[in-house]
Every structure is written in C-alpha cells, then in structure tokens.
Amino acid sequence: MDIWGQIADGASWALLVAGALFCMAGGVGILRFPDVYTRSHAAGVVDTAGAILILVGLMIQAGLTLITVKLIIILFFLLFTGPAATHALVKAALSGGQMPLTGPRGKGE
C-alpha cells in the first residue's frame, strides 16, 4: 500500500482503539460512581468521546464516500441526542425526589 494508505490505517487504528478505551472508561465510571448524577457524567464520556473517536476512525477507513456521509449523520445525531436524553433523565431524577450526594455516602446526605 502507498504511504498514505498506511498513515490512514494507522490513524484509524489509533482512533478506534482510543474510542474503545474511552467507552470502557465510561463503562467503569457507570459501575463505580455512587449515585445517578455522577453516573450520568460517566455515561456522557461514552456518548461523546467514545462515539466521536470510533466513528471518526471508521470515517477514515471509509474515505470520501457515501458511507462517510452516513457516519457523519450518525455522529451528529448521537451528539445532539446524548445530552438531551441525559438532561431529561437528570431532570426526572431530581423531580422524582432523588437528592444528589453532597459528601461521601453516609455522611454527606
């Protein structure tokens, strides 16, 4: 393959692996954080960093074709609806009587 192909493959490999790592980091955060408000931060990591890195990595693989346009549409949609869904969730949780933790569990409530 010519040099540009190798650079593109290397870049998309790095982006895909970084995206997978960010997804897992967000997943660990969803598991280990104390309450739903902090967990929504971790979920935000998955929605934004994971999605951007993985989809951009796929875009480099696809090159300038219709596939890249579809990937851009998916990425834009995810970036618009992720925060909207998280906002709706946290608003529902707050009005549902779920008080956010202010200190370490057991002392801060």
Binding site: V36, L55, L58, L89
Partner: peptide, 25 residues
C-alpha cells in the same frame, strides 16, 4: 433506582449503535 436503569439502557443503546457500525465495517 429506576433512573440508574434508564441511564444504563440508554448507554447500552448508544454502545449498540457503535457496535453495529463496527460490525458493518
């Protein structure tokens, strides 16, 4: 709480979108 479950399902859906895209490739 119910909100943790909704958050988890929402994240699962987003990750499924990524998985389907990667499987497509």
């Amino acid at each position: 709480t119910i909100y943790d479950r909704i958050l988890a399902v929402n994240t699962f859906g987003t990750v499924t979108v990524l998985a389907i895209s990667i499987f497509g490739f």
